[in-house]
């Protein structure tokens, strides 16, 4: 028991020191800390949410949250409660958004055949589609292309894309609309 508590105290002291160094910009300490935390967080997520389908995604989101709020860690206070508060909140958020998404989804046994999906096409057709889309995107102005990349390809929300680009949501919507129109015309022109 005492040995366990010593190990836990050692780990706590180590993490506190690593986090303090990371706040000072020490890359090696930060890499070591994040690598240390990964398995601990994975176990935590599995314990809190045993049926999670995407444990790795949840753990990655927790690491990102730790990164974005690392300025809130007070070096005079213990590290583990700070870490676990963030982890517990992010697991709860992930579970809530999963259930919210699940409420709007319908499970079907056999997916209807679609000619839009890559699975219904030959490899050559898939390659041709991608190439045509790449060419259509290449003619877009830089701002419109960035909007398409962030929102339609990387799947960011308008709010997130706005934070990344510094553009307003309205301007991003207009950019997407014009880009899709220009790409449609380019695809029609090229047959």
């Amino acid at each position: 028991m005492s040995e366990l508590s010593d190990t836990s105290n050692d780990r706590e002291s180590r993490w506190r020191a690593l986090m303090a160094s990371a706040q000072d910009g020490d890359h090696a300490a930060y890499r070591e800390l994040l690598s240390d935390l990964f398995p601990v967080l994975r176990r935590f997520v599995l314990r809190k949410w045993p049926n999670a389908h995407d444990t790795e995604d949840v753990v990655q989101e927790i690491l990102v949250s730790i990164h974005t709020v690392r300025q809130t860690y007070d070096r005079r206070r213990p590290f583990t409660p700070w870490l676990m508060t963030i982890a517990a909140r992010r697991v709860a958020d992930a579970a809530r958004s999963r259930y919210a998404r699940g409420a709007n989804e319908t499970t079907v046994d056999i997916l209807p055949e679609t000619f839009d999906g890559d699975g219904a096409k030959s490899e050559q057709e898939t390659r041709d589609d991608r190439e045509a889309l790449r060419r259509a995107m290449a003619i877009l102005p830089a701002g419109q292309r960035q909007a398409i990349e962030l929102i339609k390809i990387q799947g960011l929300s308008l709010d997130e894309a706005s934070q990344v680009t510094g553009k307003s949501i309205g301007s991003l919507k207009v950019g997407i609309h014009r880009a899709i129109k220009a790409m449609r015309q380019a695809l029609e022109r090229n047959g």
């Binding site: 706040q23 910009g25 994040l34 995604d57 990655q60 300025q71 007070d74 799947g155």
Partner: peptide, 26 residues
């Protein structure tokens, strides 16, 4: 949703962008 990253890639990305920060005051 973007393609899932490898855990190591994420750690490297976060480490590369670990600028010094001032902890928030009390």
């Amino acid at each position: 949703m973007a393609r899932r990253m490898l855990n190591q890639d994420l750690i490297e990305a976060l480490t590369d962008n670990c600028a010094p920060i001032r902890p928030l005051p009390h």
